[in-house]
Design a protein around this nucleic acid. Structure first.
Lengths: 208, 208, 208, 208
DNA sequence: TATGAATGAGCTTTCATTCAT
DNA sequence: GATGAATGAAAGCTCATTCAT
């Protein structure tokens, strides 16, 4: 009748997820500041006080959503690194590796589009916790890409340049592109196309 | 003893500026949301009500600061376009033009660093007026850069690519770079160096 | 020890009433405009925010009090109409019917003296909702009395006159009389005496 | 060029009147509470501070307007009393005297319709000064009418009744009638008709 | 665990009144 | 006298958070 009986901690996790799902919904449509705790609990069919059984404060719920997003990107890059540990002397192949990474990041951002926008453009400066999580995130991401560039340089593919600056540029490029060059309902082919465009740009520039 | 005697409208303008200066200060240190009207008036040594003699609401004061910034960039790009209307077939020179434009934009962003950060990352999603001003701004800026790329392509300098995407990438790159690759007290030489790095990246990519 | 245990909705109703009681008290002593929400909650021993759990705004609380009063009068007249549907050809009896109605109205106004005064003389022009409730109220009351006069005319008791004007005069007379001719602590006998006086006046005038 | 040169006090009086005219206009359209000092000065083409050269506070301006109205009624009744000092044994003529008085009062109320409404229904309970002026006014008016009834009784025209109650009823009747039975643009003939209706009612009642 | 009533700090905005020019 | 900038008390309303049930 009641489906599978869940253990205490399992039930806790389910409830928490129920709240997070509602929170994603509401944050996405109203933004961070305008979302009231009650909006979230109402959307979950729970009572206001229940929120505080699962989160210490409003920011925590958003932080959890943001963390999912950031962790997903971190993991995707981590996986890629594991796969491409060895230097790739072929430029076309190196560019393809970058393209794949960019595509992975774009896909994750795109999937969490609204949350990403709010995190990057509204909430971060309002909540110190978010900003510091972001700082850590960016440090990793930048480290990943600058290490990649360094490897490419050693493999004779890339020229000598300020890898940290280039990495930040890739980050800025991806974040802006996903928000301005991807239609809201873009599918994987559009994401792939955009990733290729960006990878080409980063590798070869606009010159012919 | 009393300095120069000012006319009524002049004094009004001075007061307004006094409030804007205070507002820039406070917004910069506390962020948009956390800044209360009273923080601004206190910082100006005025009374709370006085704010409302010069602005309709909090957003207006921030919008004025933001508008200065955005307009400055718009004008700088406008000026550049006027100067470089003719196609430039020499790649090095074309890259130098881009570098100059990027340097100009970086300099303005850098000068208004805190306001830029808040505008782009906190305030915009909270105030429709800011978002729509930004939309107009981005439209112009993207139009500028994509037109430039188009010109470069016709001059045989640039390859054929999605100019709008490339322009958005330049924008994202600049915005991220100014916030992460420029020390808070950077001078014009550092700005120039960063602009050159970015211009090279956009023109030639990371490949050797 | 804890009195009767109440259900949730019952407790809600009790709280609401508690606030209304306090509101009646405060409105009565300070008037509508001068009463602050906090005056009401303080008088109830509750916190400011609690008010807003039971009313949307200040006006709502007053409107509830006013509505009680107006509805009571409407009901009293309704009851009377039901009772005296048939024309009464005997003048003395017809006058007695009017006297009873007037007495009923006076009693209700008197019981809600302060609220009535504030409603009729202060609050109505400040809150559109009150004014429109009053408009509906007066329409009913005037309809009641003019219908009564019409019946009296058909029964040959009343002369031919502008029934709407006469009804309005009865209304004005009652409202003024209750406020100026009834001592604050008047009992039912004084109300009865005043009602008789008014009924006589309306029926026979001042002429001998 | 500048018309007649006015003396100091004359100019003062003119300015004051200029403000009062504007105040009447604004109070009439926005009500007492909603009218801001600045509304009045703007309507007079003067500056905000100027108001305080002619009035101590907001209430004073309204009080002056109210006083004009009340004094006009007081004077009209005074004049009538002077004219009809002697008892009038003819009922028809006595009724005509009452009708004339009522017509005079209605005319003055009607001419100051908006101010009267605001005075009687909004402002009085908010400003002690108004309420006490009104108290004095009502005392006089009631004294006038009850004295008149007394005289009628002595002349054998009126029956024995509580003259004070009857006088209050006349007052209540007039105030309600002018607001509900006179079209906003009524002329003297409509006023006369209403006065006759009321006088008949007060003298002979509704009975045939 | 879940609830939702209660709290009260906090912030915006208004506007009567003052006063330096 | 006339002006209008400046003042700051005041009040409404919101909502994150707590806690008794």
């Amino acid at each position: 009748m009641h489906g599978i009986r869940l253990s205490r901690p399992e039930r806790k996790a389910v409830r928490r997820q129920q709240l997070l799902d509602a929170a994603r919904e509401v944050f996405s449509s109203k933004g961070y500041t305008a979302t009231r705790i009650e909006d979230i609990t109402q959307a979950s069919g729970l009572a206001k006080g229940t929120f505080y059984l699962y989160f210490e404060e409003k920011c925590d719920a958003f932080a959890a959503l943001a963390d999912d997003l950031l962790t997903a990107v971190e993991n995707a890059l981590e996986d890629s690194r594991a796969l491409h540990a060895k230097p790739e002397p072929n430029p076309a192949k190196a560019c393809k590796i970058l393209e794949d990474e960019i595509a992975a990041v774009l896909a994750i951002y795109h999937e969490n589009r609204a949350i990403a926008t709010i995190l990057l453009h509204e909430a971060r400066l309002q909540e110190a916790a978010l900003e510091s999580r972001l700082t850590a995130y960016y440090a990793r991401v930048v480290r990943h890409f600058s290490a990649g560039l360094e490897t490419m340089r050693k493999a004779g593919v890339a020229r000598s340049l300020d890898a940290k600056v280039a990495a930040q540029c890739i980050v800025g490029t991806m974040e802006r592109a996903v928000q301005t060059c991807l239609p809201r309902r873009a599918g994987s082919s559009e994401i792939r196309r955009l990733a290729r465009e960006i990878a080409q740009l980063e590798c070869r520039g606009v010159f012919r």
